[in-house]
Design a protein around this nucleic acid. Structure first.
Lengths: 431, 431
DNA sequence: GTGAAAGCGCTAACAC
DNA sequence: GTGTTAGCGCTTTCAC
């Protein structure tokens, strides 16, 4: 792989000139520049991102942190995909690449060890795994596995590692040996440190967070670290941390009002997780609008899901077995709405006639399923784009105030609510 | 941010010792190591990935290349998500991070300019955009936008850039000026070079490719480059390039045979794109099995989609308007199957009774929709894991033979085919 | 068991 | 306009 030196040599100039020429500085003669550019192409020269990062202190890398729910990888939810697509498009156009961080579960490490301003319910230290005591950041095993570094001391026999997870204050730390290919000791790999740590190692210029609970370990730490940071659907604040989200309260109200206007008076909600901001806000919107419309708030009409299909299905089953089941349901995600619809259909109910359903998100599928879903549409790609734009600002301007952005939503009326759409049959069930 | 030097100083040792201690080399006294580890923690030391990459020539980065169909980002297809999830899990456990590359469209650059062994239909040079003539790799605009480098020559006025896209052999290249914050010239950003180029800049240790056509520009180049490379659902071969895919031929045969065994004789196919390997293979499996079963091959029963929902819908409409429509349909993706079902339902057909449908993939939704989809299940996460495992081998062993892995599939019988499932009503339509 | 020193490939002063 | 030089933060000889 050719280096800048090779190009310089070939062109008969100094490396500085090559750097300048290739980076578009004006103080290079046209003739020289042309020669250099051409030579660089011919030599297949690729400026090393690592070298550049090292010297400029700018990696042009942005971390994307996705929380992987045990069963439901966030990457799998259409909402996040769309957001990522929007985000990616914008930052890539600005010359950034994306580093994908995702965590399979709550992070065992990074429990506020750093200077995070988190007075909240701090996880008890001394609890589970001893915090931050392993030799930092050893690449699990494979560092000296096959590459250079031929002088690996001991042959991979001798499993003398009585304490592979050394404790700082405890017995002498028996360090993991490099290149111990065979003895893949206890539970290495995985959990390679907090998001913050990984971000710092890579010197990412900024981070975007999604699908995670602000109280998940390592999150507040990240937000408090001063690293430019934008969260999606997560009210994260910090010195340089802001967020984007949809108008969830308003959206929920929209849904309820629509249902009301269709004649419904018994309106249930299938809500998302309460430890998420959208979960709380959509519930608030629901409840407020109920009050505004003079409708009673009924505990038994409030069910809880997790934004995914299955939970919608189960919630609907519960609602339908109520002595006085609702005539309309507001599901706070399309996936749950689809689950609810399935449950209702299996009981023989005709969606849009016997039961009205409104979702939230407007994922692609919403328009496609049968019956097509009435839903509160979020601009998902727009959220991604907004997050990207804000993050870029945060990166470029150290003094920029962390933004809290709310994007509007709109109601998309299709069939599942039974509204008089194209086919013009009002079908408003009894109140 | 603390450097290794700070830690060394604090511990009163040399940087070499710190490096050794933190990297788990055995030739450090336990006492020293403990001190160092503790200090590193306290100082919040984070080894710089860039510095490490620079010296070790190993980035512990793996590139994931996704092709973004103009309308349908691959990231959006459930299949790829699952694959990525599996892939990610394994490589992360091995200490790698993932660099997400995705391209919005065919790549305008990298038209075989490098030494790719591609004797195929090479894109005509001198055609569209002049190849590789821009100053390589300028970070679009923003390099000197706000950061250091305060000595930016001209103030951001003077839009004297008559030729912002300089041509090598043409008129004198007017170089893009750094820091021209305001004058965000014509069509910069985006298309930052071929996948290979970006991989090389980041010195990724390996790449995984998915959702792309092997003949897309830059792909063969990548495969031919000698960079460890695994493709998913793509028969890519090269010195260090292999692939994983499901047994698509066998899976299609399975689907057809199942439909046949249910009594169907008029079996149509909604096929995926023919320029993909799964598109071809599933078609081959379909046709072969038809022959084996003694069924005629009918041109009008072959329709073409693109693996996404809409195309299934449209294909089904065509099939249903045939003089003698099929009684069964094999859709080569679940999304298309769902689209087909919708079209059929809208015509008043009862799925499983009037029309049997079998899909391919077994995405989560397949089990959830109503009626639940009978489908050929791929082990999507397994594909990701297999790709990861193979890639890691390719990386670790320069002499490793590039693998071509095929994973088995299985038929999952649910309701959409009308088979006597749980509810035991055989419903085999007329032949 | 530890230290000194030489780079990895690049950018950014500063000279000229 | 161009060259020289000094690092960025790390790993890795080679001494001792």
């Amino acid at each position: 792989m050719a280096t800048i030196r090779d190009v310089a040599q070939a062109a008969g100039v100094s490396v500085a000139t090559v750097s300048r020429a290739l980076n578009g500085y004006p103080d290079v003669s046209d003739e020289t520049r042309r020669r250099i550019v051409e030579l660089a192409r011919r030599l297949n020269y690729r400026p090393s991102a690592a070298a550049r990062t090292l010297v400029t202190r700018r990696s042009y890398l942005i971390g994307v942190c996705l929380f992987h729910h045990p069963s439901q990888p966030a990457l799998t939810h259409p909402f996040f995909q769309k957001v990522i697509v929007g985000f990616h498009r914008l930052v890539e156009a600005q010359g950034y690449d994306i580093l994908l961080f995702a965590h399979a579960d709550a992070q065992p490490e990074g429990t506020g060890a750093a200077a995070g301003p988190d007075p909240g319910p701090a996880p008890v230290p001394g609890g589970g795994a001893p915090p931050g005591t392993q030799a930092l950041d050893r690449r699990p095993d494979r560092l000296a596995g096959a590459g250079p570094r031929p002088t690996v001391p001991a042959p991979p026999a001798a499993p003398a590692h009585g304490a592979d997870a050394p404790s700082a204050a405890g017995p002498p730390a028996r360090a993991p040996r490099p290149g111990a290919g065979g003895a893949r000791g206890p539970a290495r790999g995985g959990s390679r440190g907090s998001y913050l740590k990984r971000c710092q190692q890579h010197r990412v210029d900024g981070v975007v967070l999604m699908g995670t609970d602000p109280d998940a370990p390592g999150i507040r730490e990240l937000a408090g670290s001063g690293l430019p940071c934008m969260a999606v659907d997560l009210d994260l604040v910090g010195p340089r941390a802001g967020y984007v989200m949809s108008d969830n309260v308003g959206g929920a109200a929209l849904a309820v009002r629509h249902l009301f206007s269709l004649g419904h008076r018994r309106i249930a909600i299938i809500n998302g997780e309460f430890n998420t901001r959208p979960g709380r806000d959509r519930f608030i919107g629901y409840r407020q609008e109920l009050a505004r419309l003079g409708l009673p708030y009924r505990m038994e009409y409030v069910t809880q899901g997790d934004f995914y299909f299955d939970s919608g299905y189960r919630a609907m089953e519960r609602l339908l077995s109520l002595p006085e089941p609702p005539t309309a349901v507001f599901a706070t995600s399309d996936l749950m709405a689809m689950g609810a619809i399935k449950a209702a259909q299996e009981r023989g109910l005709r969606i849009g006639r016997d039961l009205a359903v409104v979702g939230f998100d407007d994922i692609d599928l919403a328009a496609l399923v049968h019956p097509a879903l009435t839903t509160v549409a979020q601009d998902m790609e727009g959220l991604g784009v907004a997050a990207a734009r804000a993050l870029l600002r945060l990166i470029d301007d150290p003094a920029a105030a962390p933004p809290a952005i709310t994007l509007p939503v709109r109601l998309v009326v299709r069939q599942s609510c039974g509204a008089p759409a194209a086919s013009g049959n009002p079908t408003a069930p009894q109140a």
